[in-house]
Design a protein around this nucleic acid. Structure first.
Lengths: 188, 188
DNA sequence: CAAGGTCTGTACCGATCGGTAAACAATTTA
DNA sequence: TAAATTGTTTACCGATCGGTACAGACCTTG
């Protein structure tokens, strides 16, 4: 219905990229107004509590994307092996083959970490739960599930940092392939 | 010889912890003066180019610590399996069983990333080279070495983020144990 | 003890920070 | 069409930013 210039969702999408690229503290309001093309007035219209609310909105948006496209599919898709393959494909695409950082990781390693600890905790805990559950349906032992899920999710985060630091996005794909292999042939 | 109140090395050690905790952009000069107990005058005496030089000094200090205590031992210790075990023990201790972040990762995910890309690249590339070389002496195939090194180093980085985000430092140890197992029984 | 470097605290600089106020345009509703 | 709501611009606020200047304390030499 609304045909205004800027939808809140569009702003959130732009904010996500800005926070990803510059971090929470590095994303100043002047940088945000410049990159979004919106004045402070518009920004504070959408996010009355300012920068913190912007970040909350972005994190919430990301969390719900992962819920829909990753966690829920891990829970519902059959067979579980295909669900897990799907997860790796979605992750590779979402993180642009290693050229994009994970905003959750960016926030977790920033000074603003404390302010968003609830969101961070939920994101990683939900992912671990969903992945471990898929492992369970794959017949992996109870004890092994959570540990393997942590190895995989941590591995993804670390691979993003590695790819960026080495200036070699392909390193992300290489690690991803190995992690995937580790999931499918779960003999250990 | 010198018995001044604050040695440059002491300052660097404190700076490292401040940057780790608050990130590059989050570590303001007023926070630094507060945490170190040093006035701006002292800080700019040690680091005339200011904050950027402080970070360079810290990154250099960390790089040389890893060269000495991790990379060189990976290259020289025998047998290679013991060298790799040592690496995991040192890493676990250095990162305080998952309670401490890696400053290289912190910088890599911050907006200041570009300013320190050379240091980041060298750190991760050196680590990968040294670890892959140890794998070579262990008889791991040429093609496999680099890939396994990336999996392990990335896994360490990611485990730190995971541990912090979950508020569960022990997650770091759990992942570390699995990565170590993956190195020693390298049958694959 | 005098001199010169090594350190340190304080005051200050212009720029930018996150945030607020209010006038105004545009759109939707009555 | 009039009123109310929604969205945007602009100017401005006090606080803090990173950095500089400089006087003086401290320490080591001659």
């Amino acid at each position: 219905m609304s045909r205004v210039v800027a939808e809140r969702q569009d702003v959130i999408t732009m904010l996500a990229e800005i926070f990803r690229e510059h971090g929470y503290d590095g994303a100043s309001l002047s940088l945000i107004t410049e990159k979004t093309g919106l004045g402070k007035g518009s920004l504070y219209h959408f996010f009355p509590r300012g920068k913190e609310e912007m970040a909350e909105a972005v994190l919430g948006d990301i969390a719900s994307w992962f819920q829909t496209n990753i966690f829920n599919r891990l829970r519902n898709s059959e067979p579980p092996a295909a669900a897990i393959d799907d997860m790796f494909a979605s992750v590779d695409s979402y993180f642009r083959q290693g050229r994009r950082l994970c905003l959750m990781g960016v926030i977790a390693t920033s000074g603003a970490h404390d302010r968003f600890s609830a969101e961070l905790n939920r994101y990683f805990a939900d992912w671990r739960t969903a992945l471990a559950e898929a492992f369970g349906r794959q017949g992996i032992a109870e004890d092994e599930r959570k540990a393997l899920a942590e190895e995989v999710i941590g591995g993804i985060q670390g691979a993003l940092i590695l790819a960026r630091s080495l200036g070699d996005p392909q390193a992300f794909g290489r690690v991803l392939t190995r992690l995937k292999a580790r999931c499918t042939l779960s003999h250990n």
